[in-house]
Simulated assay, not measured.
Amino acid sequence: MKRITVLLMLNVMMLISCTGIAQKQTFDVISYEVPRGWEQKQNDASVQLTATDKSSGAYVMAIITRAKPSAASAGDNFTDQWSKAIKEQVELDGEPVMQAPSKGNGWDIVTGGAGYTDNGTKGNIALLSATGNGQTVSVIVMTNSKKYEQDLSVFLNSLELSKTVQKSEASSAESSTGNNVNPSSLVGLWVDYKAEVSGYSNGVPMYSAGYFRKEYLFKENGTYVFRVKNWSATMKEILFIYETGTWKVNGNQLTIAPTGGKGEWWGKAASGRTTGWGSRIRLAAIKKETVAYNFELHYYEGVKETHLLLSSNLPTEREGSSNNGSQKNSWSYVPRKQGNSMIDNPPGFKP
Protein backbone atom coordinates (compact mmCIF):
# COMPACT_ATOMS: atom_id res chain seq x y z
CA MET A 1 0.00 0.00 0.00
CA LYS A 2 1.19 3.48 -0.75
CA ARG A 3 2.98 5.24 2.09
CA ILE A 4 0.77 8.34 2.16
CA THR A 5 -2.32 6.15 2.29
CA VAL A 6 -0.88 4.33 5.28
CA LEU A 7 -0.20 7.63 7.00
CA LEU A 8 -3.77 8.74 6.52
CA MET A 9 -5.30 5.49 7.69
CA LEU A 10 -3.15 5.34 10.81
CA ASN A 11 -4.32 8.79 11.80
CA VAL A 12 -8.07 8.34 11.34
CA MET A 13 -8.72 7.82 15.04
CA MET A 14 -6.54 10.80 15.89
CA LEU A 15 -8.79 12.86 13.64
CA ILE A 16 -11.58 12.15 16.08
CA SER A 17 -9.93 12.90 19.40
CA CYS A 18 -6.46 14.39 19.05
CA THR A 19 -5.70 17.68 20.81
CA GLY A 20 -2.17 18.69 19.83
CA ILE A 21 -0.06 21.00 21.93
CA ALA A 22 0.38 23.52 19.10
CA GLN A 23 -2.25 26.18 18.58
CA LYS A 24 -4.82 24.99 16.08
CA GLN A 25 -6.84 26.73 13.45
CA THR A 26 -10.42 25.82 12.63
CA PHE A 27 -12.18 25.72 9.30
CA ASP A 28 -15.85 24.90 9.61
CA VAL A 29 -16.06 21.55 11.47
CA ILE A 30 -12.37 20.57 11.30
CA SER A 31 -9.50 21.86 13.43
CA TYR A 32 -5.95 21.50 12.17
CA GLU A 33 -2.35 22.61 12.58
CA VAL A 34 -0.40 24.15 9.69
CA PRO A 35 3.08 22.57 9.38
CA ARG A 36 5.94 25.02 9.41
CA GLY A 37 6.70 26.43 5.97
CA TRP A 38 3.35 25.50 4.42
CA GLU A 39 1.26 28.15 2.69
CA GLN A 40 -2.44 28.48 3.38
CA LYS A 41 -5.21 29.80 1.14
CA GLN A 42 -8.86 29.91 2.10
CA ASN A 43 -12.11 30.56 0.27
CA ASP A 44 -15.75 29.96 1.04
CA ALA A 45 -15.62 26.30 -0.01
CA SER A 46 -12.29 25.05 1.35
CA VAL A 47 -8.91 25.72 2.89
CA GLN A 48 -5.84 24.64 0.91
CA LEU A 49 -2.40 23.99 2.39
CA THR A 50 0.66 23.59 0.17
CA ALA A 51 4.43 23.31 0.28
CA THR A 52 6.78 23.15 -2.70
CA ASP A 53 10.48 22.53 -3.23
CA LYS A 54 11.19 24.39 -6.46
CA SER A 55 14.66 22.89 -6.84
CA SER A 56 13.42 19.29 -6.91
CA GLY A 57 9.79 19.77 -7.98
CA ALA A 58 8.56 18.04 -4.83
CA TYR A 59 5.23 19.20 -3.45
CA VAL A 60 2.55 18.36 -0.92
CA MET A 61 -1.06 19.56 -0.79
CA ALA A 62 -3.91 19.19 1.66
CA ILE A 63 -7.50 20.36 1.14
CA ILE A 64 -10.16 20.61 3.84
CA THR A 65 -13.65 21.21 2.50
CA ARG A 66 -16.53 22.97 4.16
CA ALA A 67 -19.29 20.67 5.39
CA LYS A 68 -22.25 20.57 3.05
CA PRO A 69 -25.72 19.06 3.33
CA SER A 70 -26.05 15.42 2.27
CA ALA A 71 -28.66 12.73 2.71
CA ALA A 72 -26.36 10.14 1.11
CA SER A 73 -24.51 7.37 2.93
CA ALA A 74 -20.88 7.68 3.99
CA GLY A 75 -19.85 5.29 1.23
CA ASP A 76 -21.78 7.18 -1.44
CA ASN A 77 -20.29 10.48 -0.30
CA PHE A 78 -16.78 9.03 -0.55
CA THR A 79 -17.49 7.70 -4.05
CA ASP A 80 -18.96 11.02 -5.19
CA GLN A 81 -16.05 13.06 -3.81
CA TRP A 82 -13.43 10.63 -5.15
CA SER A 83 -14.99 10.80 -8.61
CA LYS A 84 -15.42 14.57 -8.82
CA ALA A 85 -12.44 15.91 -6.89
CA ILE A 86 -9.86 13.24 -7.68
CA LYS A 87 -10.67 10.75 -10.44
CA GLU A 88 -11.81 13.38 -12.93
CA GLN A 89 -8.84 15.65 -12.18
CA VAL A 90 -5.84 13.35 -11.61
CA GLU A 91 -4.36 10.53 -13.70
CA LEU A 92 -4.73 7.67 -11.24
CA ASP A 93 -2.76 4.42 -11.34
CA GLY A 94 -5.79 2.40 -10.22
CA GLU A 95 -8.84 2.25 -8.00
CA PRO A 96 -8.53 3.46 -4.39
CA VAL A 97 -7.31 1.05 -1.73
CA MET A 98 -10.03 1.20 0.92
CA GLN A 99 -9.82 0.84 4.68
CA ALA A 100 -12.52 -0.46 7.00
CA PRO A 101 -15.02 2.32 7.85
CA SER A 102 -14.71 3.87 11.30
CA LYS A 103 -16.91 6.00 13.57
CA GLY A 104 -16.34 8.81 16.02
CA ASN A 105 -17.97 11.96 17.41
CA GLY A 106 -21.12 11.16 15.45
CA TRP A 107 -19.30 10.82 12.11
CA ASP A 108 -19.05 7.81 9.80
CA ILE A 109 -15.58 7.94 8.25
CA VAL A 110 -14.53 6.31 4.98
CA THR A 111 -10.93 6.47 3.74
CA GLY A 112 -9.06 5.36 0.65
CA GLY A 113 -6.02 6.22 -1.41
CA ALA A 114 -4.21 5.49 -4.67
CA GLY A 115 -1.12 6.32 -6.68
CA TYR A 116 -1.18 8.90 -9.47
CA THR A 117 1.04 10.17 -12.26
CA ASP A 118 1.67 13.89 -12.79
CA ASN A 119 3.75 14.81 -15.84
CA GLY A 120 5.66 11.56 -15.57
CA THR A 121 6.22 11.86 -11.82
CA LYS A 122 4.59 9.36 -9.48
CA GLY A 123 2.71 10.48 -6.41
CA ASN A 124 0.13 9.33 -3.88
CA ILE A 125 -3.26 10.76 -3.00
CA ALA A 126 -5.75 9.91 -0.26
CA LEU A 127 -9.26 10.98 0.65
CA LEU A 128 -10.96 10.97 4.02
CA SER A 129 -14.73 11.47 3.80
CA ALA A 130 -16.79 11.98 6.96
CA THR A 131 -20.59 11.89 7.07
CA GLY A 132 -22.82 12.71 10.03
CA ASN A 133 -26.16 14.28 10.89
CA GLY A 134 -27.09 15.07 7.31
CA GLN A 135 -23.79 16.61 6.27
CA THR A 136 -20.48 15.55 4.76
CA VAL A 137 -16.93 16.90 4.86
CA SER A 138 -13.66 15.69 3.36
CA VAL A 139 -9.90 15.97 3.62
CA ILE A 140 -7.66 15.32 0.59
CA VAL A 141 -3.89 14.92 0.89
CA MET A 142 -1.42 14.35 -1.94
CA THR A 143 2.34 14.45 -2.48
CA ASN A 144 4.92 13.35 -5.01
CA SER A 145 7.78 12.97 -2.53
CA LYS A 146 8.74 11.23 0.72
CA LYS A 147 10.30 14.56 1.71
CA TYR A 148 7.01 15.64 3.28
CA GLU A 149 6.10 12.47 5.20
CA GLN A 150 6.96 14.02 8.57
CA ASP A 151 5.01 17.20 7.78
CA LEU A 152 2.04 15.12 6.69
CA SER A 153 2.18 13.18 9.92
CA VAL A 154 2.10 16.44 11.90
CA PHE A 155 -0.84 17.70 9.87
CA LEU A 156 -2.83 14.47 10.07
CA ASN A 157 -2.17 14.05 13.80
CA SER A 158 -3.52 17.54 14.39
CA LEU A 159 -6.85 17.03 12.62
CA GLU A 160 -9.94 17.03 14.80
CA LEU A 161 -13.59 16.72 13.82
CA SER A 162 -16.06 18.61 15.96
CA LYS A 163 -18.73 16.51 17.60
CA THR A 164 -21.94 16.21 15.65
CA VAL A 165 -25.26 15.57 17.35
CA GLN A 166 -28.03 13.12 16.67
CA LYS A 167 -31.28 14.54 15.36
CA SER A 168 -33.00 13.91 18.66
CA GLU A 169 -30.40 16.13 20.38
CA ALA A 170 -30.27 18.87 17.78
CA SER A 171 -31.25 22.46 18.19
CA SER A 172 -34.90 23.37 18.34
CA ALA A 173 -34.36 24.97 14.94
CA GLU A 174 -34.46 21.49 13.47
CA SER A 175 -37.89 20.88 14.93
CA SER A 176 -39.20 23.19 12.24
CA THR A 177 -38.75 20.57 9.53
CA GLY A 178 -41.26 18.65 7.48
CA ASN A 179 -44.93 19.20 8.24
CA ASN A 180 -44.24 21.26 11.37
CA VAL A 181 -42.86 24.30 9.58
CA ASN A 182 -44.23 27.66 10.58
CA PRO A 183 -44.38 29.70 7.34
CA SER A 184 -42.85 32.67 9.15
CA SER A 185 -39.64 30.61 9.46
CA LEU A 186 -39.13 31.06 5.73
CA VAL A 187 -39.39 34.84 5.80
CA GLY A 188 -36.03 36.38 4.95
CA LEU A 189 -33.13 36.07 2.52
CA TRP A 190 -31.90 32.62 1.38
CA VAL A 191 -28.88 32.44 -0.91
CA ASP A 192 -26.79 30.12 -3.04
CA TYR A 193 -23.48 31.87 -3.79
CA LYS A 194 -20.71 30.00 -5.56
CA ALA A 195 -17.23 31.01 -6.72
CA GLU A 196 -16.24 30.09 -10.27
CA VAL A 197 -13.70 27.29 -10.66
CA SER A 198 -11.54 27.81 -13.75
CA GLY A 199 -9.83 24.43 -13.54
CA TYR A 200 -7.83 22.11 -11.35
CA SER A 201 -4.12 21.78 -10.66
CA ASN A 202 -3.15 18.42 -9.20
CA GLY A 203 -6.71 18.02 -7.98
CA VAL A 204 -6.79 21.46 -6.36
CA PRO A 205 -9.56 23.78 -7.60
CA MET A 206 -8.30 27.03 -9.10
CA TYR A 207 -10.72 29.91 -8.56
CA SER A 208 -11.22 32.75 -11.02
CA ALA A 209 -12.67 36.11 -10.04
CA GLY A 210 -16.07 34.93 -11.30
CA TYR A 211 -19.14 33.89 -9.37
CA PHE A 212 -22.63 32.46 -9.76
CA ARG A 213 -25.20 33.81 -7.32
CA LYS A 214 -28.90 33.24 -6.84
CA GLU A 215 -31.20 34.12 -3.96
CA TYR A 216 -34.78 34.16 -2.71
CA LEU A 217 -36.20 36.95 -0.58
CA PHE A 218 -39.42 35.67 1.00
CA LYS A 219 -41.55 38.49 2.38
CA GLU A 220 -44.11 38.39 5.19
CA ASN A 221 -46.93 39.37 2.82
CA GLY A 222 -46.53 36.14 0.84
CA THR A 223 -44.57 37.64 -2.06
CA TYR A 224 -40.99 36.93 -3.08
CA VAL A 225 -38.13 38.28 -5.14
CA PHE A 226 -35.77 35.84 -6.89
CA ARG A 227 -32.53 37.22 -8.33
CA VAL A 228 -29.60 35.77 -10.25
CA LYS A 229 -26.28 37.37 -11.10
CA ASN A 230 -23.67 35.36 -13.00
CA TRP A 231 -20.29 36.99 -13.63
CA SER A 232 -18.05 34.45 -15.37
CA ALA A 233 -14.43 34.99 -16.33
CA THR A 234 -15.07 32.89 -19.45
CA MET A 235 -17.96 35.01 -20.74
CA LYS A 236 -18.07 38.55 -22.08
CA GLU A 237 -21.46 39.35 -20.57
CA ILE A 238 -23.21 39.34 -17.19
CA LEU A 239 -26.50 37.48 -16.77
CA PHE A 240 -29.03 39.15 -14.49
CA ILE A 241 -32.47 37.72 -13.66
CA TYR A 242 -35.17 39.36 -11.57
CA GLU A 243 -38.41 37.49 -10.80
CA THR A 244 -41.32 38.30 -8.52
CA GLY A 245 -44.37 36.34 -7.45
CA THR A 246 -46.11 34.64 -4.54
CA TRP A 247 -45.17 31.83 -2.19
CA LYS A 248 -47.19 29.65 0.15
CA VAL A 249 -46.61 26.66 2.43
CA ASN A 250 -48.84 23.60 2.70
CA GLY A 251 -47.37 20.92 4.95
CA ASN A 252 -43.95 20.10 3.54
CA GLN A 253 -44.69 21.75 0.18
CA LEU A 254 -43.50 25.19 -0.79
CA THR A 255 -45.24 26.53 -3.90
CA ILE A 256 -43.52 29.36 -5.74
CA ALA A 257 -45.62 31.04 -8.42
CA PRO A 258 -44.06 33.83 -10.51
CA THR A 259 -46.17 36.75 -11.62
CA GLY A 260 -43.51 38.93 -13.21
CA GLY A 261 -39.86 39.28 -13.98
CA LYS A 262 -37.26 39.41 -16.72
CA GLY A 263 -33.73 38.46 -17.59
CA GLU A 264 -31.07 40.68 -19.12
CA TRP A 265 -27.56 40.38 -20.52
CA TRP A 266 -25.21 43.20 -19.58
CA GLY A 267 -21.70 44.11 -20.62
CA LYS A 268 -18.91 44.08 -18.06
CA ALA A 269 -17.41 47.21 -16.58
CA ALA A 270 -14.53 48.69 -18.58
CA SER A 271 -12.40 48.50 -15.44
CA GLY A 272 -12.87 44.72 -15.35
CA ARG A 273 -14.14 44.88 -11.77
CA THR A 274 -16.57 42.08 -10.95
CA THR A 275 -18.76 44.47 -8.98
CA GLY A 276 -19.21 46.87 -11.89
CA TRP A 277 -21.64 47.01 -14.79
CA GLY A 278 -21.28 47.97 -18.42
CA SER A 279 -24.19 48.70 -20.74
CA ARG A 280 -27.37 46.71 -21.15
CA ILE A 281 -27.09 44.53 -24.28
CA ARG A 282 -30.30 42.54 -24.71
CA LEU A 283 -33.05 40.62 -22.96
CA ALA A 284 -32.38 37.08 -21.76
CA ALA A 285 -35.00 34.43 -22.42
CA ILE A 286 -36.43 33.15 -19.16
CA LYS A 287 -39.46 30.98 -18.53
CA LYS A 288 -41.75 31.71 -15.60
CA GLU A 289 -42.55 28.40 -13.93
CA THR A 290 -44.76 27.59 -10.95
CA VAL A 291 -43.18 24.82 -8.89
CA ALA A 292 -44.44 22.95 -5.82
CA TYR A 293 -41.21 21.96 -4.04
CA ASN A 294 -40.82 19.50 -1.24
CA PHE A 295 -38.86 21.41 1.37
CA GLU A 296 -37.20 21.13 4.74
CA LEU A 297 -35.54 23.51 7.16
CA HIS A 298 -32.58 21.48 8.37
CA TYR A 299 -30.27 22.51 11.20
CA TYR A 300 -26.60 21.59 10.74
CA GLU A 301 -24.79 21.42 14.03
CA GLY A 302 -21.35 21.61 12.41
CA VAL A 303 -21.96 24.99 10.79
CA LYS A 304 -24.67 25.97 13.30
CA GLU A 305 -27.04 27.07 10.56
CA THR A 306 -30.50 26.16 9.38
CA HIS A 307 -30.52 25.53 5.63
CA LEU A 308 -33.50 25.60 3.30
CA LEU A 309 -33.53 22.34 1.33
CA LEU A 310 -35.71 22.18 -1.78
CA SER A 311 -36.37 19.18 -3.98
CA SER A 312 -38.49 18.42 -7.03
CA ASN A 313 -39.18 15.50 -9.33
CA LEU A 314 -37.68 17.41 -12.27
CA PRO A 315 -35.14 20.17 -12.88
CA THR A 316 -36.62 23.65 -12.60
CA GLU A 317 -36.23 26.77 -14.71
CA ARG A 318 -34.95 28.75 -11.72
CA GLU A 319 -32.50 26.26 -10.21
CA GLY A 320 -31.55 23.91 -13.03
CA SER A 321 -30.72 20.31 -12.10
CA SER A 322 -29.08 20.49 -8.65
CA ASN A 323 -26.68 22.42 -6.43
CA ASN A 324 -26.65 19.84 -3.63
CA GLY A 325 -23.87 17.38 -4.37
CA SER A 326 -24.93 14.06 -5.87
CA GLN A 327 -28.60 14.51 -4.95
CA LYS A 328 -30.59 14.93 -8.16
CA ASN A 329 -33.07 17.83 -8.41
CA SER A 330 -32.14 19.04 -4.94
CA TRP A 331 -31.09 22.54 -3.90
CA SER A 332 -29.71 24.03 -0.72
CA TYR A 333 -29.95 27.68 0.33
CA VAL A 334 -28.31 29.27 3.35
CA PRO A 335 -29.71 32.16 5.37
CA ARG A 336 -28.27 35.65 5.04
CA LYS A 337 -29.23 38.85 6.77
CA GLN A 338 -31.61 41.04 4.81
CA GLY A 339 -29.84 44.06 3.43
CA ASN A 340 -26.62 42.03 3.14
CA SER A 341 -27.21 40.59 -0.33
CA MET A 342 -24.22 40.17 -2.65
CA ILE A 343 -26.42 40.71 -5.72
CA ASP A 344 -26.93 44.29 -6.87
CA ASN A 345 -29.39 45.48 -9.50
CA PRO A 346 -27.94 46.94 -12.70
CA PRO A 347 -27.83 50.74 -12.96
CA GLY A 348 -31.22 52.21 -13.70
CA PHE A 349 -32.89 48.82 -13.48
CA LYS A 350 -36.66 48.90 -13.14
CA PRO A 351 -38.50 45.64 -12.23
Results as ranks from 00 to 15, higher is better:
residue 270 A to M: 10
residue 308 L to V: 10
residue 303 V to Y: 03
residue 319 E to R: 10
residue 270 A to G: 04
residue 292 A to R: 05
residue 316 T to M: 05
residue 293 Y to Q: 00
residue 312 S to L: 03
residue 317 E to S: 13
residue 319 E to S: 12
residue 268 K to Q: 12
residue 288 K to P: 03
residue 270 A to E: 13
residue 271 S to H: 02
residue 287 K to Q: 12
residue 306 T to W: 03
residue 274 T to A: 10
residue 313 N to H: 02
residue 277 W to K: 00
residue 271 S to Y: 01
residue 268 K to N: 07
residue 302 G to D: 11
residue 298 H to I: 11
residue 282 R to Q: 14
residue 285 A to Q: 09
residue 300 Y to C: 09
residue 305 E to Q: 15
residue 297 L to K: 04
residue 318 R to K: 15
residue 270 A to N: 10
residue 282 R to E: 14
residue 307 H to V: 15
residue 313 N to D: 13
residue 281 I to Y: 02
residue 268 K to A: 06
residue 275 T to A: 13
residue 293 Y to M: 01
residue 290 T to R: 04
residue 278 G to D: 10
residue 270 A to T: 11
residue 306 T to E: 07
residue 278 G to I: 07
residue 265 W to S: 09
residue 285 A to V: 05
residue 294 N to S: 13
residue 283 L to S: 14
residue 297 L to W: 01
residue 274 T to Q: 09
residue 278 G to P: 02
residue 283 L to M: 07
residue 267 G to R: 08
residue 287 K to T: 11
residue 299 Y to Q: 09
residue 293 Y to N: 00
residue 276 G to K: 04
residue 287 K to P: 00
residue 308 L to I: 09
residue 278 G to T: 06
residue 277 W to P: 04
residue 265 W to V: 05
residue 304 K to A: 15
residue 309 L to V: 15
residue 312 S to H: 13
residue 268 K to G: 04
residue 310 L to W: 00
residue 310 L to I: 05
residue 316 T to V: 03
residue 272 G to Y: 03
residue 269 A to Y: 02
residue 292 A to P: 00
residue 303 V to P: 04
residue 303 V to L: 15
residue 320 G to S: 09
residue 270 A to H: 03
residue 286 I to Q: 04
residue 311 S to M: 10
residue 291 V to I: 11
residue 300 Y to V: 12
residue 317 E to W: 03
residue 299 Y to C: 05
residue 274 T to F: 07
residue 271 S to K: 03
residue 311 S to F: 02
residue 288 K to G: 08
residue 281 I to W: 00
residue 269 A to D: 14
residue 290 T to N: 03
residue 272 G to F: 05
residue 295 F to N: 08
residue 304 K to V: 06
residue 319 E to A: 12
residue 290 T to S: 12
residue 292 A to W: 02
residue 300 Y to H: 15
residue 313 N to C: 01
residue 300 Y to D: 10
residue 311 S to R: 14
residue 282 R to T: 12
residue 293 Y to T: 00
residue 284 A to Q: 08
residue 264 E to K: 05
residue 291 V to W: 01
residue 277 W to Q: 00
residue 286 I to Y: 04
residue 277 W to G: 00
residue 287 K to E: 12
residue 299 Y to F: 15
residue 309 L to R: 11
residue 307 H to G: 13
residue 318 R to T: 10
residue 293 Y to V: 01
residue 300 Y to A: 12
residue 320 G to Y: 00
residue 271 S to T: 11
residue 289 E to G: 08
residue 268 K to M: 08
residue 303 V to K: 12
residue 303 V to R: 15
residue 274 T to Y: 11
residue 309 L to I: 15
residue 276 G to Y: 03
residue 266 W to R: 09
residue 310 L to F: 00
residue 285 A to E: 10
residue 306 T to Y: 02
residue 267 G to F: 01
residue 314 L to N: 14
residue 295 F to K: 05
